[in-house]
Design a protein around this nucleic acid. Structure first.
Lengths: 229, 229
DNA sequence: CATTTTATCAATCCAAAGATGTAAGACAAA
DNA sequence: TTTGTCTTACATCTTTGGATTGATAAAATG
């Protein structure tokens, strides 16, 4: 399964024409990549990507006309298999987080040294994901903060008062079952399920099943933890 | 605001006594850190952390007795301000993801060179978050995959068929309101709400409000995106 | 051993939720 | 203008959900 090795093809998208020219020259002269296109428009960039199928796109994400992040999202949805590297003037944690969430394979700053930019492209071209150390740190601080806020909400988690059986019942509730469905799955009578459900309501201090389900989901019940979007 | 600079204090937790001794020697000889404790038990480690208040904890997360990840969680909950570095024999993406989610400030492999371990400690001691490049790559692949699955699920999203009003009603449903509550908040009659809710059920192809709420939450409704835990 | 908790089941009653059909006014598109 | 969709609204009926009380046996706890 050895692939044919060829020069990776790069598409550049940056609304700043000067910077665009500079990067193009840098890549042409200092690396072995083919620049198959360079445009100042995000929409044009997406069209070019569809046409030329580059391996890598260097995308400025701070453009006035169209949001670069949105462009990344659209490119990912097209599933062209292109690796997008976000290029930005800012090392804002939120920007980094959103870019990576949308599927960017790298995030580099415009202020970075040329050699480091080439290195980033090399890494991404070889299938890795590249973030400069400092930005990785930023990312994780943001990442951990978003989980911590959640955790602190569930300091006093009423779910801990539930018995094992009640947890089973609640889990089935969070899957959209009604009394009959739960009774069938647990091989117990419907009235027993009602008893359990009522006890769950008491312990979680809620009035109905929907609220119980919401409480469960928002307080780290089993399989899902939420993240701020 | 210059802080008084002193040697950082380190606590070691590793159920493998041999490895524990080795790391202790390494740090004592090759670095300027104080090893204030070393134990093979996670529970003991937590006690020692409370007693000696180390700056950094090197925590093996592959321990049979008690899960190291759980220990990290407990330490974070205590808010001792200690920086935990996860130490593991495996570069499993899920392990890395969970450790970082729980607040680990770093993740290093036991197979790494001594110098790199010291470097990791240096970085974390100085307030940064440290992940070796290869592990960063792993982490992000996992991270992006968990978001992508979500996106792909919502390709054919039944939520798009809802009218603006129905979305309002659904949002109130996802907040645990009953008919009366929704009617009051939207200043319309309860029967009208019933009409909307019934239409929502039809469009989302569900049988009751709980299922509708679950569908909404699992398909990118508004404020929360889930992530596999 | 005595006590408490848990899991099971039942009967009853009322409230809430859900299904179905109908319809009028607003508004936008054809 | 006609057509269609959206929002509003009501009546009726059936089903489901929820509260309450009480009861039994097993299991855990002290």
């Amino acid at each position: 399964m050895r692939e044919f090795k060829r020069k990776s093809r790069i598409l550049l998208i940056d609304d700043n024409a000067d910077h665009l020219r500079g990067v193009k020259e840098l890549i042409t002269l200092e690396s072995s990549y083919d620049v198959v296109g360079a445009t100042t428009s995000a929409n044009m960039g997406i069209s070019l990507a569809k046409k030329y199928r580059p391996d890598i796109i260097l995308m400025d994400i701070n453009m006035p006309e169209k949001d670069g992040l949105q462009a990344i999202q659209e490119l990912e949805k097209l599933e062209l298999g292109v690796k997008v590297i976000a290029l930005s003037g800012y090392d804002d944690a939120d920007l980094i987080f959103r870019a990576m969430k949308l599927g960017a394979k790298g995030y580099v700053l415009k202020t970075m040294a040329s050699a480091q930019l080439i290195y980033a492209i090399d890494e991404v071209a070889s299938g890795k994901i590249y973030l400069p150390t400092a930005l990785t740190s930023r990312f994780f601080e943001y990442f951990q903060r978003s989980f911590k806020e959640e955790a602190s909400v569930s300091e006093e988690n009423l779910l801990t008062y539930l018995t094992a059986r009640e947890e089973e019942v609640l889990e089935l509730l969070t899957q959209g079952n009604n009394y009959k469905g739960i009774a069938g799955k647990l091989f117990i009578s419907e009235t027993t399920v009602k008893t359990h459900v009522n006890n769950i309501f008491q312990k979680l201090q809620v009035n109905d099943r929907t609220q119980a389900v919401l409480y469960a989901l928002n307080n780290g019940f089993a399989n899902r933890k939420a993240i701020r979007a």
